[in-house]
């Protein structure tokens, strides 16, 4: 394996288990809860979801890797684990530097104005107040939130889902990243925003060592990635050249529908 470029991300037999509370079972009364405690059983309302089951691969410098798979196949979970945001149950993820996740669900505070959210998001990513001030206008312009009136000074809960997603993406994209993980971030917003964001991702890719893209739009994957990993039920089904893998995936999903 020494022939390859330097590895930037190594995923080593990673398993991820979510613990979900409140996934209520059949009997969920106080009396049932008490008898459970007495008999030392696990609450039925707590379920474990085994989202990623033993995934291993190596990514190298300069690679753009697409990740495809049906809904709930563990793609987003895997990206979060690579970003170090969701600790794996067993196994290890090794990375070169701190990967950054560009997701549409990078949550912000709904009760606060868009303006406040931009500032908070930037500060949380480690920018200084001076850098925030410098980037602020650019982020707002990029998001296009203010195209139809002064929406940035309204609380986020008043935004449409598309607007909120645009703002989140704009905040996350304001920083340069070593290893970049893009989770469905390109699918949000209207056509003009999509064009802008794809452009921005290409820019970021130029600066980043390695890029991962999760998308349900196979065209995006074909456009951006040379290598693709197909994940199904938390297991790698295929890993290789984009054309081949996406074609196989398309056949699989076409057959099922």
């Amino acid at each position: 394996m020494a022939d390859f470029d330097d590895p930037t991300v190594i995923v080593d037999d990673v398993h991820i288990v979510y613990r979900v509370y409140g996934a209520s079972g059949s009997r969920n009364s106080p009396a049932a809860a008490f008898s459970r405690i007495v008999r030392r059983r696990r609450p039925p309302s707590m379920r474990e979801v085994h989202a990623v089951r033993g995934v291993s691969f190596v990514a190298h410098k300069g690679e753009a890797i697409g990740i495809v798979g049906s809904n709930g196949s563990g793609k987003s979970t895997l990206l979060r684990a690579i970003a170090g945001l969701l600790p794996p149950h067993t196994g290890k993820v090794y990375t070169n530097g701190q990967p950054s996740l560009l997701g549409v669900n990078a949550a912000l505070m709904n009760d606060l104005t868009g303006e406040r959210n931009v500032v908070l998001g930037c500060l949380a990513m480690g920018m200084t107040p001076a850098q925030v001030k410098q980037n602020y206008q650019q982020i707002v312009d990029f998001s296009g939130i203010n195209e139809r009136g002064d929406f940035i000074s309204l609380p986020m809960r008043t935004y449409s889902s598309g607007m909120a997603a645009r703002l989140r993406f704009s905040i996350a994209a304001a920083k340069t990243h070593d290893v970049l993980l893009i989770d469905e971030a390109l699918a949000t917003g209207d056509a003009s925003f999509q064009r802008r964001s794809e452009e921005r991702v290409r820019e970021l890719r130029g600066q980043a060592g390695t890029v991962f893209v999760v998308s349900h739009q196979n065209k995006t994957i074909r456009d951006m990635c040379e290598r693709t990993i197909w994940l199904e039920s938390g297991v790698i089904r295929m890993d290789g050249d984009t054309e081949e893998v996406v074609a196989a995936y398309e056949e699989f999903s076409g057959r099922r529908s």
Binding site: K92, T95, N96
Partner: peptide, 10 residues
């Protein structure tokens, strides 16, 4: 990972 000096993510 050790050879290339990669750290554990997170």
């Amino acid at each position: 990972a050790r050879r290339y000096g990669l750290g554990v993510s997170g």
